[in-house]
């Protein structure tokens, strides 16, 4: 589904260098690495937000050209949920409707999809609530619902379980495991190495901006190939 070849991406003093990485459709990947290893940068590259200085990104068999006009249709198939997600001012419903409106989804279908997405994150009845009234955990769940409502082909999650209580983590992990069965590819960045066995995803290890060359890292790439 997504292939990275000879990528170099600089952000200040930091460089993300990836020789080759292949992510396949309908798979769940867990991206491990210490703080500053480049997990968020890799996710932003995969979300087509940061262009690399060098290398190729191939999405669904097509080479990505970094012009706004060509990026937009691809971005509509990918959604990134950031570590500290931002909700727009207004109501929960307005937030979920944003991505649907820019895709020109008819309003009756918007409503159905919003209700379904809120149900998925266990926030039924929250649609008219102002985002100012939400707790930290609820903000994260609304942001996840806002990503899920778009039914992306590639869902990128940056530390999605941070600041959630144990019960919410379990519920979220259960939900994440079910998503690849719906044809969605998922990449979860996490510093928690205990999380991957539970999720059962393939592991990608990052160390100082490079894919780890240890056994597990090589295995992950080899598995994908």
């Amino acid at each position: 589904m997504v292939e990275l070849k000879n990528i170099d991406l600089k952000r200040g003093d930091f460089t993300l260098s990836i020789e080759r990485l292949l992510l396949q459709s309908g798979e769940l990947y867990v991206l491990h690495g210490a703080n500053g290893a480049g997990k968020s940068t890799l996710l932003q590259l995969l979300a087509l937000l940061l262009p690399p200085e060098r290398g190729e990104l191939i999405y669904a068999g097509r080479l990505v050209h970094w012009s706004e006009r060509r990026l937009r249709p691809l971005r509509q198939e990918i959604t990134l949920l950031e570590q500290s997600p931002l909700l727009f001012s207004g109501t929960v419903e307005q937030n979920l409707a944003f991505g649907l409106k820019v895709r020109n989804i008819p309003s009756d279908k918007q409503q159905q999809r919003i209700e379904r997405a809120l149900e998925t994150v266990d926030l039924q009845g929250f649609s008219r609530r102002s985002v100012k009234q939400l707790s930290g955990g609820e903000v994260r769940r609304v942001a996840l619902a806002r990503a899920l409502v778009l039914e992306p082909k590639l869902l990128l999650l940056d530390e999605p379980t941070a600041n959630l209580d144990a019960g919410q983590v379990t519920a979220l992990e259960r939900l994440l495991v079910s998503l690849p069965h719906r044809g969605m590819s998922i990449v979860i960045a996490s510093h928690d190495t205990q999380q991957s066995p539970w999720l059962g995803g393939k592991i990608i290890r990052l160390q100082k901006g490079c894919l780890d060359k240890d056994e597990s890292g090589l295995k992950a790439v080899a598995d994908q190939q």
């Binding site: 937000l49 971005r75 509509q76 990134l80 950031e82 991505g99 820019v102």
Partner: peptide, 18 residues
């Protein structure tokens, strides 16, 4: 304003103008 507004909108499929 919050620096994440534009990127958040882009990741939700908006054009740069939107």
């Amino acid at each position: 304003a919050d620096e994440r507004i534009i990127n958040t909108a882009l990741t939700l499929g908006a054009s740069r103008l939107q």
